[in-house]
Design a binder for these strands. Structure first.
Lengths: 198, 198
DNA sequence: CAACAATACGGAGCATTGTTCCGGTTGGCA
DNA sequence: TGCCAACCGGAACAATGCTCCGTATTGTTG
């Protein structure tokens, strides 16, 4: 849209080193606090944990929603980027399973953000799309690999699996989540030529 | 569970007339404010509209969530109780259609509460159950009547229809909502012996 | 009908939290 | 090295949830 923004994602002026430090620290602190106390946690709690002043926070994230959205994107990215490494290191189904566990961890951490995302606030309207755009390809890749190798069936819609995960994850009961993931993956295996449980 | 609660729903002591007035006024005011500004609307806005003091509100609804839950239940009840009258007055499909419109109105009003309901706050955990327990029988009755008279098909799960409604309703676009309800009902009609659109 | 005890009422006041503002400091560049 | 824009911390302000208590209303009893 802007005719001078052809180049890239970097803002016009380079961010100063100390500013970047503050941003990183804040993002990390906010992620922790949000996960622990939800998005309504006091701002002071975040600034305290980050060891910065309130002014610093508001300089970089003028609206509270800016911080929330940034944390969300940051965690989505981190989770999505974990996939390739798993694919490279493990065989398809194992990689898929491990990534699902990683994703469960993401969902659990995102619990505090959940309320905000569904609030209808236009500031967050782009996040579900981001979530989908980012995760569907990743999961598709993992599923495809496992399908190609003949380990799982091929009629599963990636987004359905993501939603199912969202419903399954119980932040307070790690064991339950683990068991359900196992169950899901076993379900995926059903009907392949290698149907062979213990 | 409690051995002394066999009797009924009335609290042990009768509420005074002025107290009941305050409660009703507050409920009405809160419903309006929540619908307009969401559940995070300032408490003062509600007390102002109701013409009562803050103390009065907190006397009857010690926690903010108590007020929210009360409003929710109140509106659920109102909507559910509208069904019998419609059934008595109109033929099955017409009654069903009219009630769906009524339900759409409820969902639109509940928009402000939506965020709270999905927040995971234990104070609201019982509300979805209440929603379901109250609405599923009502809708089942309406559907059964229309099925018996042969106007609609019989393979529709009431709760699915409720969910679909929740997704369809666009508080800002009344026309759209209306059209979608029509479409849904037409869909229900499909495959009956009276398949006969205009 | 009158007086009284229980209950409810209003709204000022306190505590908490979001947000702004500004004097001092730091980082990057000439 | 020296300069200036950018950044930092945190005090101060504003908005809001919630409590407290003196006053008013209700329902009952004699």
């Amino acid at each position: 849209m802007d005719d001078d923004s052809k180049g890239g994602e970097q803002p016009r002026r380079r961010v100063r080193a100390d500013a970047q430090r503050s941003i990183d620290t804040l993002l990390a602190a906010a992620a922790e606090v949000f996960a622990a106390s939800g998005v309504d946690a006091p701002v002071r709690e975040i600034t305290a944990k980050a060891g910065v002043g309130a002014g610093t926070l508001y300089r970089h994230f003028p609206q509270r929603s800016d911080l929330i959205a940034a944390v969300f994107r940051h965690e989505v990215d981190a989770c999505a980027e974990a996939a390739p490494a798993l694919s490279a290191q493990y065989e398809p189904v194992e990689a898929l399973t491990r990534w699902l566990h990683r994703f469960a961890q993401f969902v659990a951490a995102k619990r505090g953000l959940k309320a905000a995302l569904h609030s209808g606030d236009p500031a967050y309207s782009s996040l579900p799309t981001y979530f989908r755009k980012r995760f569907v390809p990743v999961l598709s890749e993992l599923l495809d690999a496992a399908t190609t190798s003949g380990d799982i069936r091929s009629d599963v819609v990636p987004y359905d699996l993501l939603r199912a995960m969202g419903d399954i994850v119980a932040p307070d009961d790690h064991g339950y989540t683990q068991r359900m993931i196992t169950l899901l993956v076993d379900g995926l295996r059903y009907g392949t030529r290698r149907t062979q449980p213990a």
